[in-house]
Design a binder for these strands. Structure first.
Lengths: 311, 311
DNA sequence: GCCTGGCCACAACCAGCGGTTGTACCCATA
DNA sequence: TATGGGTACAACCGCTGGTTGTGGCCAGGC
């Protein structure tokens, strides 16, 4: 199916005749006739009944028309998603199903008219470069890694402190605990595959390990969260950290337990980064939305690395 | 933009390389390369960065990908909307913004997974023919016109009795009334343009006129509901009938008044028609939904033509 | 009843799109 | 440095999809 053909169909349906549609599309009437005939051949149904005064839609044509319009709308949106200037707000998140995606879903619910595109970049370096080049408008990150302050043209604000919870299988020693103090995790193996060296994740967990004497194993390739959850569920000696707001796709309940961590609760600080001079109007709306959503949280009894920029 | 090209883009993005995508699509690698290059030229942005191990999405490519998938989904739905066998449930309503459309919206909310196509046919004759031919699955109508019983292979059920209200402008003599008895309308001019002779609307209003001595003018072409409402708002001597559930698109409030009619309240009987042997599974769901929605209404103090099939 | 006007479909023709094969180039790896 | 896997460019060509020309059909008016 060709979108020009669909456009021709819609034009002919609106005009009620091929001749006028042809004039609108700046082609001959014969071209319109051939396009419609080809579309009818493709779909296997007759879309118009040809009369002496033009062409009117059959029932099949009536049923097809709204779908055709929708198709053109979606094509238009797809094209504008990459057209420079007045394109949708483009935001980088660290992972789907993360708390950041949750924030963006909330923003979309609050402002359904604002067009959004969500992408996932590799690390903060890439994100900063993309922000500076204008390829993206904003990025959710944990800024900044120690010793690497943000460039002056990049602004940022803390938007969410997400408490980390321990995720264990049903046979884990701590599976029955209602909560667990952070210091008590010193003897347990905590497994976090897929933490890529050089990203801000690494810096965060390095500090957590250094300060509380934990044992975090980042070994092994990342086979995806399904494999991770499978292993956690089946291995009594292993646990992992997971953000409180992270949504699990867990069709079969393998008895996984989320256990809050206390004294202090490690929180992962999510910040929003954007370029000082970015003129996108929706960016200001997003910042206002996040500022309103972030208000009123309590930082007492929590831990973040010392290098994290204060709120 | 060509949907085959979009399909190629999605395949290449999923595969991570052109070669494998080409194999899936049963074309050569060079064809995929040319298609992607053409798409990039069309959109004016680079979608892939070519590496030694394949091709990975740029940020623009990432932003475009979900739109491309959506485009293919919509195209698929558009094609199935006219494909015979397992196509969406196709229902004929008398007008958009009518109570029937409201019923269908309610059904769609209750069963969002059921695909629907809504069409508007000319009259009950056309609708019955379309039902018999299988072109549509169901039709909302006021059955049956007097002396024209339904054929035995068409089944029907009353699904909604919609009270008619008087619609007047602010300067109309009855504009201030909280309600008006039907007999009291005898002296007033009631204007119903666009009532097409031969349709079941005509039969309904003919009976209403005959029984209560009203003056209903069906003269003049139908310039659309906007023009009708404009005229009603500006003309003190004119009023019109409108279904209680009919939704007005009325950007500027011209002070229109809806006045309930009593003693008795004329109600317009909406029935659902379908073919005895129609096997569409969603049809049974629709009938069950409408039966549940129709339960518990009170027919006391209302009027319908004598030829309307009883509930 | 026939002419006329308006509209659509078919035929013939042709440019160019979009496929193929062949080949060069690039880069990671051994 | 050689090798293998991947992409891009060039040349070629069939067929899609446009054009012009023409015929058929139907409604309305003289």
């Amino acid at each position: 199916m060709d979108l020009d053909t669909v456009r021709t169909f819609v034009a002919a349906a609106d005009a009620g005749q091929f001749q006028e549609a042809a004039a609108e599309l700046a082609v001959t009437q014969q071209a319109v006739s051939k396009r419609i005939a080809a579309l009818e051949r493709n779909l296997g149904v007759r879309l118009f009944t040809r009369t002496a005064r033009g062409a009117e839609l059959t029932i099949d044509g009536q049923a097809f028309l709204p779908h055709a319009r929708e198709l053109l709308r979606v094509a238009e949106r797809a094209a504008t998603s990459v057209r420079t200037g007045h394109r949708p707000l483009r935001v980088d998140v660290i992972a789907s199903r993360s708390a950041q995606s949750g924030l963006m879903r909330g923003f979309h619910r609050a402002h359904p008219d604002i067009e959004l595109d969500v992408v996932m970049l590799f690390d903060i370096e890439t994100a900063v470069a993309a922000i500076r080049s204008g390829a993206i408008d904003a990025s959710f990150r944990a800024v900044a890694a120690p010793g690497r302050p943000l460039p002056p043209d990049i602004e940022s604000v803390r938007v969410l402190d997400e408490p980390l919870q321990l995720l264990t299988g049903p046979a884990h020693a701590l599976a029955g605990a209602r909560s667990v103090p952070l210091a008590q995790l010193a003897g347990h193996r905590i497994w976090m595959p897929g933490i890529v060296p050089g990203t801000e994740w690494t810096a965060y967990y390095d500090d957590l390990v250094a300060e509380f004497g934990l044992t975090i194993e980042a070994t092994g390739p990342n086979f995806g969260s399904d494999a991770l959850l499978d292993t956690i569920a089946d291995t009594p000696a292993l646990a992992t950290f997971m953000g409180e707001h992270t949504r699990l796709i867990w069709p079969a309940d393998h008895g996984l337990r989320r256990i809050p961590v206390t004294d202090p609760t490690p929180v992962y600080p999510h910040s929003l980064l954007w370029h000082r001079d970015n003129p996108h109007p929706a960016l200001a709306t997003l910042r206002a939305h996040l500022a309103a959503a972030a208000a009123g949280h309590d930082a007492a009894g929590t831990w973040t690395p010392g290098w994290v920029i204060p709120r």
